[in-house]
Nucleic acid binder design. Sequence first.
DNA 1: CTGAAAGCGCTTACAG
DNA 2: CTGAAAGCGCTTACAG
Lengths: 339, 339
Amino acid sequence: MHDVVRRPTIIDVAKKAGVSKSTVSLVLQNSPLVRAETRSHVREAMAELGYVYNRAAANLRSSNAGLIGLVINDLRNPFFTQFATSLQMALSARGYAAVIANTDEDPTLQAQVVEAMIEHGVSAVIISSTYGENGGAFEALGRAGIPAMQVLRKTNAHVETFPFAGPDYLEGGRLATAHLLEQGAKHIAFVGGLQGRDVTRERMEGYLSVLQESELEPVVLTGRSSRSFGREMARRLEKEHPEVDAVLCFNDQVALGLLSGCAEIGRRVGRTFRIVGFDDIEEAAESWPPLTSVRCDIAGFGQSIAGTVLDWLENDKMPAPETRTPVTLMVRDSSNRDS
Amino acid sequence: MHDVVRRPTIIDVAKKAGVSKSTVSLVLQNSPLVRAETRSHVREAMAELGYVYNRAAANLRSSNAGLIGLVINDLRNPFFTQFATSLQMALSARGYAAVIANTDEDPTLQAQVVEAMIEHGVSAVIISSTYGENGGAFEALGRAGIPAMQVLRKTNAHVETFPFAGPDYLEGGRLATAHLLEQGAKHIAFVGGLQGRDVTRERMEGYLSVLQESELEPVVLTGRSSRSFGREMARRLEKEHPEVDAVLCFNDQVALGLLSGCAEIGRRVGRTFRIVGFDDIEEAAESWPPLTSVRCDIAGFGQSIAGTVLDWLENDKMPAPETRTPVTLMVRDSSNRDS
DNA sequence: CTGAAAGCGCTTACAG
DNA sequence: CTGAAAGCGCTTACAG
């Protein structure tokens, strides 16, 4: 209706080039079977006709449509945005397209989008899952038998089927806490992160283990991982825990919120009140004071996941059940100098 | 290879339910032709077999695969992330999946991803285009004859073919500038936005027109639309334009950077130095001081675009060549009170 | 190296 | 209301 003239097919190309459609198909696949001269004839015919490859048709016979599903629990969060973007671009560079869906931490929605992706014939799925009743999505993936990889959050225990990869959160918690101790902090709080979640547990465990070694008492204020929560905590810490002189935040959102909150109540950040974030999103370097943060190299992580999944898909190389990527600490002024 | 047992097809379902495959197909399409009892038999058979619909196959005959392409110039920028996310979720709610690609402002990459999307059989494309030599993408879209809509940035003049929709940037510039005048500002600067781009021009034009009416001199410092640029400008404004007592920023990124920069140099923001951003990304309300910003309701905009495009696709209702959505001003402390 | 034929899983007229 | 048949645009053995 928008296009009265139907798109040319390999048959049209074959006619134009004076070969059979099989030959055209072989050219399309860069098969070495067809000789250079024929190949260029065919390519010319394609160009003249404005031929475009129909992957859906190809997929019908051969599978591997070149579509990868990417399911993200919170795409508005810069940490996940940066992951999704770098992953998508890496896939694109290798000739794959990404169907991306945000689930807003809703398991029901997650099950729906996964089912939809399977209908669309995605060849693999990469999922940063919701917590809670998320069985639906994994069940559907299992039934469909397509490679599916858990990233960033391990919410399904069957890592032999759904291998997991994520940053070494525990080590990150350790690094950050050790750094604060070195800087002379005496009372270090852990702020943010919903209780009971694996990611919170891991990050906190690193913190707790270092405190324990130093025989220091932990102060834990779990909660949402949002800026507004961080901001509220500035006041609360000052009032209820005036002795706290350093904070390890669950993530950068909380830390940036805490930074705002300190500005709001006029509390200096730096030597007297040190703040460390987690994830090192791009913004961390741009705040004032610049935020010390545990760097997960999320862009590099996204790229490497693209490689892992395509290796699984193309070469049947199943990833290890669990992969932890190294983290480092980016020390900036928020934990270091007064400002 | 991952799945030895091949996925059941409508033929399997038909056998199991004791009907012909046409009937199964009709059930799949919720056709009123098949009677309720038969329908439920078929549905049961599908459930028992774990049947999943193969959209690629369906598409081969009927087109409209239920795939929509979403091409974004800078997906890491929260403004575009929020747009893409709300659009994707609205599409998902109506049974469509979104193939999303970031182009990082690269016209060559943009042409590539658009071609790839067409190969994948997307039924429509929504594009927030790169500037510059972006002809390739639009040419490919034109050749393929699929509905394509420009959003947020009008970079292709053929709006009869590629209709445009975006917020009323000009009005936003006016609103913000008028607000600053009302607050008593005498010297208002415009900061950020690359020169020569339409979006910059429109936002600036609103600013200039209001200044002209009041016979005030403009101070324009164009540049990248990044936090770091905004941050640099704090120092530069103080040094080179000490008279400036209010700033309209090209977007919230610049404004948030400027806020950081002011914190850095110890300049108070509020009554003595007013800052207004543009876009009203979620973060604007969370900064300190909270940022006054021109609200584009980007989430609502994304949803409405989903509706517009699906109406085009499903009911052949071509959108108006150009749509401007209303903007409002969210007044917060950064232009209002001292902090 | 190239061609003729079957088939991927659906939908779509067309009969009945 | 339901079934038999053709066809969507490719790929894949199989001959030659």
